[in-house]
């Protein structure tokens, strides 16, 4: 009775989120003149390429620094993901398993830094990195965000769920602090580690404000920041080129995500069945 209505609602909801993305994808396969010709009146060709072609992608490849900048984004992704995961793993282990004064307070302090958004605190952050002499350098981009409260939280929770008996068993078998981490805990939190890594990897594609501020040289810039400079809302923007370049930029994130996502679900399935 109400079934068609429910179906329609879901369809509308799905379209609301997918249509803009498909529109951008379609735009990357069209020619600029094509886009402007059909913009005036509403027809199918307002949304879809009348004569699809990969000219925009060809032009994107000839953008002078795009390939270097894309490499910067991907490299930063790997560095950030690995750095945050390792530092979160070590901190999470200490916060979960060690007893020391102020442990809870330290954990709360770490979580509290979540409430300092980069948008708000951009100038002082710039001064700190400038004082360290890291402006215009790769590490100046990366270091301020290698500590991640979300990562620490995620991994500490995962370690909390590993039964302490495993630690005790390992230390009775003669394992030191590092071996306990390596042999008793690591194999049981693989899912959380991959989730943490993946999250922080993809997170680099979010970046805009920080690299815009802290990286002034073009060949050290991230691809998404460089592409943004192609957009000028007050003049006619070459959207085909923008989206072709943007899609090339996102592609590595998607590939890595697709590969690791399989491990994510399978490792959750094995640790879930306690």
């Amino acid at each position: 009775m109400k079934r068609p209505l429910r179906f329609m609602l879901r369809l509308v909801l799905a379209a609301l989120f997918v249509a803009p993305i498909l529109l951008a994808l379609a735009a990357s396969f069209r020619d600029n003149s094509d886009m402007y010709r059909y913009a005036g009146s509403l027809s199918l060709w307002t949304f879809l390429p009348a004569e699809p072609g990969i000219d925009a992608y060809r032009r994107a490849f000839t953008l002078p620094l795009l390939q270097t900048q894309l490499f910067n984004t991907v490299l930063l992704g790997f560095v950030m993901a690995t750095g945050t995961t390792v530092s979160s793993l070590l901190a999470g282990y200490a916060l979960s398993r060690f007893r020391f004064r102020g442990r809870q307070a330290l954990f709360l302090l770490m979580l509290f830094t979540l409430f300092i958004p980069v948008d708000v605190i951009l100038p002082p952050l710039f001064f700190v990195v400038r004082d360290l002499g890291l402006i215009d350098s790769f590490w100046g981009l990366a270091l301020p965000f290698i500590f991640s409260p979300i990562g620490v939280y995620l991994i500490r929770q995962a370690i909390e769920e590993v039964p302490r008996e495993l630690d005790h068993a390992a230390s009775l078998d003669g394992a030191g602090l590092w071996e306990v981490l390596r042999t008793a805990i690591l194999p049981n939190i693989r899912g959380a580690l991959i989730a943490c890594w993946l999250m922080h990897f993809v997170f680099v594609w979010e970046w805009y404000l920080w690299p815009l501020t802290a990286m002034r040289s073009d060949d050290g810039q991230l691809a998404q920041v460089a592409i943004a400079s192609l957009i000028d809302p007050l003049r006619s923007t070459d959207y085909a080129l923008v989206f072709a370049a943007a899609i090339l930029t996102i592609l590595p994130a998607f590939v890595v995500f697709a590969i690791l996502q399989r491990f994510l679900t399978s490792s959750q399935a094995t640790t879930g069945g306690k």
Partner: peptide
């Protein structure tokens, strides 16, 4: 173990 996170 806390060192890297703590320094940052």
């Amino acid at each position: 173990f806390l060192a890297p996170a703590l320094v940052m």
